[in-house]
Design a protein around this nucleic acid. Structure first.
Length: 349
DNA sequence: TATTCGTGGTT
DNA sequence: TAACCAAGAAT
């Protein structure tokens, strides 16, 4: 038997005994639930996703319920999960399912791909897992497993076309959802990026990287670009009752559509004194140093924010996108983790 | 094709 | 502990 044919046979047999349990797995999951979980799981760990998934299903049990929600409420529930374009696209996709697909998710990859936030991987995963359609599901796990199994010398991401070819060859005609999820489980528990557990791997007999005793050297990758450091100043403005001045961010770009504590621009150089943005009334206030610094790491840059504080009269009226928020409602706003860190530090202050 | 887009877990 | 990484998509 060839290594290609043995692949799915051995992997599925292993899966029958070693499959993991998740809230979005089995129990007659609807396509809506599979879609929601797949979007949440994009570049996000299962442990992180689980509580978010449960909250979403409780609040929006169906795609119809999600489509009827306010986009802002979706972002509130998404706050802290990251990659907020996913949250924005989630609501648009729900509306599209209602308007263009009669409230039912399509079972073809080509149609699933029309949904915002559903790309090549996610369309294939939904087709396979929700509808048991044969689909070539290639995620980071599959790329890592295949690059080892076939000892692919080409570097990522250039190797992607070759890895897709190999995935096409090893993907079986039956048990499509199981095969995809078996790959996830193997990649997470056995064929890990570091410290792979090759002794328990169902594919070890035909794994070329293992035969070379070089499993961890696959997949081949180039060096990562280093993260630039940026600096900014947060303007913590309270009124007499402790209400906090906040602002809605523009709908696109970094943290798009989320709520922020206003800050200066994020520059490449550390400010060498007090920075007060030229923002309408800001210059009129007496800003105090707090000595509080908040560090945060984004995907493509690191950020260090210093917090300065001022007080103003309760009667100060602001217009959108500015707004005042009571301290008790802060936990329920669409605040990204960066600004929750600021709040947590200031509460200790 | 190369960048831009978060965050928390893990080592 | 700094670095790596995760069930990638959009532009």
């Amino acid at each position: 038997m060839s290594a290609v044919k043995q692949y799915s046979i051995n992997l599925l047999a292993w899966y029958d005994d070693h499959r993991r349990e998740f809230e979005w797995r089995d129990r007659g999951m609807t396509p809506y639930q599979i879609w929601l979980s797949e979007v949440m799981l994009q570049q996000t760990g299962t442990k992180t996703v689980t509580p978010y998934y449960l909250r979403f299903i409780a609040r929006f049990p169906t795609v119809a319920a999600l489509a009827e929600a306010e986009p802002g409420e979706v972002l509130k529930l998404w706050a802290g999960l990251g990659y907020y374009a996913r949250g924005r696209n989630l609501h648009r996709a729900a509306e599209m399912v209602m308007a263009e697909f009669g409230g039912e998710f399509p079972d073809q990859e080509s149609l699933l791909l029309r949904l915002p936030g559903v790309g090549t991987y996610t369309a294939a995963a939904i087709a396979a897992i929700a509808f048991d359609r044969r689909a070539v599901v290639v995620d980071g796990n599959v790329e890592r497993i295949l690059s080892r199994y076939f000892a692919v010398e080409e570097f990522l991401p250039q190797a992607k076309p070759r890895l897709r070819e190999l995935a096409e060859q090893v993907t079986p005609q039956l048990r499509n959802g199981d095969f995809a999820q078996a790959s996830f489980d193997l990649g997470a528990t056995i064929c890990r990026p570091r410290n792979p557990d090759c002794g328990h791997c169902p594919l070890r007999r035909d794994c070329r990287a293992l035969a070379m005793d070089a499993v961890e050297s696959f997949p081949k990758k180039g060096p990562k670009p280093q993260r630039p450091q940026r600096f900014g100043t947060v303007f913590w403005l309270e009124d007499e009752t402790g209400n906090l001045l906040l602002r809605h961010r523009p709908p696109q770009g970094l943290l798009g559509g989320m709520v922020e504590i206003p800050s200066s621009e994020w520059q490449a150089v550390r400010p060498n004194g007090q920075v007060v943005t030229d923002e309408f009334f800001y210059k009129q206030l007496e800003w105090q140093e707090t000595g509080i610094t908040v560090s945060h790491v984004f995907t493509h840059f690191a950020l260090e924010l210093q917090v300065i504080r001022a007080f103003t009269a309760q009667a100060l009226v602001v217009e959108p996108p500015w707004f005042w928020a009571r301290r008790e409602e802060l936990p329920h706003l669409a605040l990204p983790s960066l600004f929750r860190k600021v709040i947590k530090q200031m509460e200790r202050f």
